[in-house]
Amino acid sequence: MHDPYRGLSDFVLNGQASGLHHVFSGPQPEQIAILYRNGYLRACREALEARFPAVASAMGEVEFRKVCTAYVQTSPPRQRTLTGYGADFPDWLSTEVCSLMNPGLVDLARLDGAWLDCLFGLDENPLTALQLNQRIQSGDGLPVSLRLPRNARVVALDHSVFDVWLSIRQGESGAWVPTQPEASHALLWRPDMTVLSRQLDAWEARFYLSFQATDSLEEAAEHFLPATTNDHDLPITLEQYFARLIESGLLIAGD
């Protein structure tokens, strides 16, 4: 017995029309059934564009469309929603010719993906200075455990793309300029309904990676390095840095 499901899915996924007559009556059903294949490819492409807007902007429409078609062929959606489609797109992109030419594109994809993961991540109420003062005044002291918000993402970057990414996300996109190799990290987190982000110093990256992995502020603090410049925006002491964490909505009181 011929499988009508296979006949149509082969056409939608690969454009193979030979099985369509097991599904549809009439001659040349592929002329109209192309609606389904085009709809599938368009839905996947739109999902990728929604998740990776900076990559789409940097590549340009024509190139991004080609890349999406190739990606969809390699990694079709597995979940019954496209909201999270493309989780492995940055890794896949790192093997593509366009990325070998402009390797910063992969970092843009990592940042785009982390931004959406952060936006859709868990809602949590960060510890506030007021709450902390109340605890101290009531004799409770610091919460037993403090951790980063579960929606926080520490993103490893291989190229100096963070400022470019921010500009594109803020609608200030100009021509995409290939970037220089420069290892760094970025932090994305969402204290309320807006995703915040900033680039991290080397020690801060170690601090946040440790904090995220261990949920231990004490262990993370071992990576603290006081600022050695005269930049007054940087905290000088660990206590000042702790205050900065609270001010930024980066501390969640554990159970």
Partner: peptide, 17 residues
């Protein structure tokens, strides 16, 4: 309708024979 086969989501409302 149907929209999935072999754990692949086809993101379309496909007609049923």
């Amino acid at each position: 309708v149907w929209s999935s086969i072999d754990h692949t989501y086809l993101a379309e409302l496909l007609p049923l024979p």
